[in-house]
């Protein structure tokens, strides 16, 4: 499978990435190469292999239901580009 410029534009939009028109062809070629690599891997017969989601054969550990975190808003918000009244500000998301 290979991708054209339109595919790349579409994928970039879904990923909320801004891609320069001039770079589209390069991305299309690189992404197509990756997909070809996946195709090569797909040709291996894995019918008898269980999908591996986690490399360690263990179960999830559970924590007790206690509040352990303090309010560190000031510290965290010092890194944010815009805050007001304790809120993080982002570009408006609805019309």
């Amino acid at each position: 499978m290979s991708l054209d410029n339109d595919d790349v534009r579409h994928i970039a939009h879904l990923a909320r990435l801004g891609v320069d028109e001039a770079d589209l062809a390069g991305y299309a070629r690189d992404l197509s190469d990756i997909l070809r690599f996946v195709e090569t891997m797909n040709s291996v017969d894995t019918g008898s292999v269980e999908p591996l989601a986690h490399p360690i054969d263990m179960a999830q550990r559970l924590r007790p239901d206690t509040v352990t975190e303090d309010n560190q808003r000031e510290l965290f918000q010092a890194l944010a580009p815009a805050v007001e009244d304790g809120l993080y500000l982002v570009p408006r998301v609805i019309e």
Partner: peptide
């Protein structure tokens, strides 16, 4: 381990895990 109490001042109950900082690991509440 952040509190779930309703009505707190904005973002005072949001820890690094809740904020989605890289490298944070979630641990499930029993």
């Amino acid at each position: 381990g952040s509190s779930t109490a309703y009505g707190a001042e904005p973002n005072t109950q949001a820890s690094l895990i809740d904020l989605g900082y890289p490298g944070m690991l979630p641990v499930l509440n029993k």
